[in-house]
């Protein structure tokens, strides 16, 4: 069964301060990706390369937290254009690995990365400061501290089956309640 493009619900995905692992997990739904492609129109996502929203979306999946001003801007655009926003994975829900820097002052982080780190070679002695580079936030924020988030899917990354179950439920208008088996990791 196939649905006309334009009548299928649109979804959008993005990776903010994440590692794309959650997107890899989404691709791990294997052959169900074909089913997904029939169910939805992927409007804006790293896999379709659209830069800005051109239409309202039913569901937005967010990977990663916010570590810089551009993340915040992107996340806010997602909030403005998506009916339902889902934090996917531990970085989006809690800050995750990038949030390890939250206990270290920003200057120390930059010094360590660009000036004094044991494997750093930087003859200019400058911390990258091109105006094009987005400004870093004082700490890494989980998404729900920046905009309201409707659902959280835990995991690093969430298993493909969990993502599939969540997306299916959302698209059919149900409350996504994931069974324990999809949320246990040992």
């Amino acid at each position: 069964m196939s649905t006309e493009a334009g009548t299928r619900p649109r979804i959008a995905t993005v990776s903010l301060a994440g590692c794309f692992g959650c997107h890899m997990s989404l691709l791990d739904i294997d052959e169900r990706i074909l089913e997904l492609a029939e169910l939805v129109e992927i409007h804006k996502s790293p896999i379709v390369d659209r830069k800005t929203f051109a239409a309202r979306c039913a569901v937005g999946l967010i990977e990663g937290g916010c570590c810089n001003a551009e993340n915040v801007e992107t996340l806010r655009a997602f909030r403005d254009h998506c009916d339902v926003l889902v934090s996917v994975g531990d970085c989006a829900t809690m800050g995750g690995i990038p949030a390890l820097r939250n206990r270290v002052p920003l200057k120390e982080c930059l010094d360590e990365a660009y000036l004094s780190g044991p494997s750093t070679v930087n003859p200019t002695g400058r911390i990258p400061d091109d105006p094009e580079l987005p400004l870093l936030l004082d700490r890494v924020y989980p998404c729900h501290e920046v905009v309201p988030i409707d659902y959280h899917v835990p995991g690093c990354p969430p298993p493909a089956d969990a993502l599939w179950a969540a997306v299916q439920a959302l698209l059919s208008g149900e409350d996504p309640v994931l069974p324990y088996a999809l949320l246990k990791y040992d």
Binding site: N68, I127, H144, V146
Partner: peptide, 19 residues
């Protein structure tokens, strides 16, 4: 559509000063 507690300007102030 925004969380009241998050203040973008305040949270980039440190990075702006460093730059």
């Amino acid at each position: 559509t925004r969380r009241a507690a998050f203040d973008l300007e305040a949270s980039v102030a440190g990075a702006r000063a460093l730059r």
